[in-house]
Computed example of a mutant assay.
Amino acid sequence: MSQQAHDFETQLIHAGEPRPGILGSVAMPIFQTSTFEDPHEHDYNAIRYTRLSNNPNQLALHDKLAALAGAEAALVSASGMATISNLLLSLLSPGDHLLMQNCVYGGTHTLITHELARFGITHQFIDAGDPASWPQPIPPKTRMIYVESMSNPLLEIPDFEAVVAYARKHGLLSVIDNTFASPYNFQPIPLGFDLEVHSATKYLNGHSDVIAGACMGSARLIETLLHKQNHFGGSLDPHAAFLLLRGLKTLAVRLTHQNATALEVAGYLDGHPALASVNYPGLEHHPRHRMAARHFRGFGGIVSFELKAGSDAARRLIDLLDLILFAPSLGGTESLIVKPATVVQSGLDAAERNAAGVGEGLLRFSTGLESSADLIADLKQALEKI
């Protein structure tokens, strides 16, 4: 595609695609091969080998994701956690310090608190929405501040401008997990974040049939991550890359529907007598609604809510649902529900979950592409029976 600026929806279809198509193909073919012959190339870094993330399927994804994020470069990997692990292990060293949002995905939390700690990398949890509470002066050897655009599972929203300004003031790398928003709803790189990470398994692919991760940012940082990933071996399989490239093309139409459905579902749940709280940034009483409204195209497809009756009621509601499936993950065509205390935050102990605000009666609902009326009816009949 030419360098002429195009709208996001057009970039979803055309960015990164080889033109003219390979042997005239309209869809990107699958290069299901581990290695490529090149008798004229003897530089290791230029060898075409799928583990080195330079298979044509991977390269097309890199170009498309960079264009969608407004970034210089991108890198895909075998899972979201492979991306996050590679990033943290590549850019932090023993003795370094990390500032981390206080309620993040459980896998990220465990990686920080258990695995990085073994390498002498320390951390401090912060309220990402309260810049006045962030450390001043910063702890020695602080190198990075890490947040989520919408936290998993409470949908808390950071003060984005403050995170970027704080990072620049103190010479920190600013990293944001943008999985819940997706580049369709929010683009953090043009706002000033250094790196954007995704579990591409979720909205980017959107069909519950791929495990993948992605990172977007400057060419310099992505080159560093690429070389480390080549050693760690977390490259994405060509067939998975093909499916992710295909899934991306429907991101805009999927998210438009899911944004609207989640807002309707949140509106129905809000104030329900069986619920203690409903978390959705599209609700005007959400504490960060104005921040979300200023930066987001849509408020996302995730709603979390807490039942007053606690854990047993949450379990019973899940069992009573008909259309909505009890399964981990999110962002696919089917609506899913989980109990974060036993799935998303299962690696945290009870005290850590309580500190993060994740109660035993909390449920996380991911809207699919079903009718909003049918989803609300399913929730209604289940809530009436608990």
Rank of each mutant, 00 (worst) to 15 (best):
L330Q: 07
I22P: 13
S79L: 09
T50N: 07
N230P: 01
Q345N: 14
Q136P: 00
L12W: 08
F180S: 11
L336V: 02
C215L: 14
Y49Q: 12
K380W: 00
A200N: 12
Q124L: 09
V26S: 13
T35Q: 12
R48E: 14
M144V: 07
Y105D: 14
F31N: 06
L255D: 09
R48V: 05
T110C: 10
H109L: 03
E17K: 15
M100K: 05
K380P: 03
V197W: 09
I222V: 15
S2Q: 07
L68M: 10
L99E: 03
A214V: 06
R353C: 07
L379I: 02
M291V: 02
I126V: 11
A5C: 00
T50K: 08
G206R: 05
T35K: 13
L348I: 02
S149Y: 01
P188Y: 03
L221G: 04
E370G: 01
L362N: 04
Q381C: 05
H97T: 09
G24C: 13
G217Q: 09
E115C: 11
K141N: 15
T122Y: 10
S25L: 13
D38H: 12
M28G: 11
R220L: 13
K380E: 12
Y166L: 06
D378Q: 09
K141E: 13
I112W: 07
S133V: 05
E306L: 04
A293F: 03
G120D: 06
A165V: 00
A15M: 07
A341Y: 03
S2D: 09
I318W: 01
D127G: 04
S90D: 09
A356C: 10
A212I: 08
Q3F: 15
A356T: 08
V278D: 08
I211N: 15
G70T: 03
S77E: 15
E17V: 06
M291N: 05
A71K: 06
F193T: 07
A69R: 01
N354V: 08
T142M: 08
D237Y: 10
A274V: 01
E37L: 15
Y184A: 00
G95H: 08
A74W: 05
H272N: 14
T83N: 12
D194V: 01
Q3C: 13
G331K: 08
L155S: 12
L173T: 13
G359K: 13
N54W: 11
G233A: 15
R297G: 03
H42E: 06
Q4E: 07
P158L: 02
V26F: 04
M81S: 13
E196L: 10
A309E: 03
D374Q: 02
G192S: 00
L323K: 01
F8Y: 08
I222D: 02
A241D: 11
H97G: 06
E17W: 12
H6R: 12
